[in-house]
Amino acid sequence: MDLGAGQTEAGEFTLLLEFDMDMAGFTSNWSYCDRLSTYFARMISHNRSDSLLYSNLFSSALNELLETVYRLHAPTGSFVCSVSRNGAKDRIALTIPVDTETEGFYRDAVVVLNGGDVSPRYHNALFSDGPLQPNIGLLELAVDYAACFSIEPADGNAIRLIAELTLEASAP
């Protein structure tokens, strides 16, 4: 696994931190979702107005994205997670190896997330019987964190799922 930080420009966003990892390595241990989201959150929160609060919120949001990727991906390929910043907005970009089925999941999910208020879907998913719906983390980000989602093709059999978050407004 590589962890890097730099000043590479990503449009108007400045890259803060990026890691890439073989998907088989990432999915070998569930706790990587927790550890990576916590590590990322700590590293990028120091200069927010309340670093601890921001870190808690960011970790929660990123963890849900990582857990989604952990469950839904193609078996091989490289997984890349980067965080870039533009003022109050942070952009999480996840490059996910996909097959036809998983690509369909992410594309359908983004259509739903951008199709209007998804609060009812999220609340239904939270209290549904049986196993959790696989898109619950994405719904949570859209509802509780007002995340804006987009999706674009990436090199090889991969897609790039992008979530933009403005969490500072939540700070006390």
Binding site: D34, T38, S59, S60, E64, E67, L126, F127, L132, E140
Partner: peptide, 17 residues
């Protein structure tokens, strides 16, 4: 409780409801 994912919340919520 600093961190809680949806898997855990779903279990707790079910029992509380």
């Amino acid at each position: 409780l600093v961190r809680l994912n949806n898997v855990a919340f779903h279990s707790l919520a079910g029992a509380l409801l």
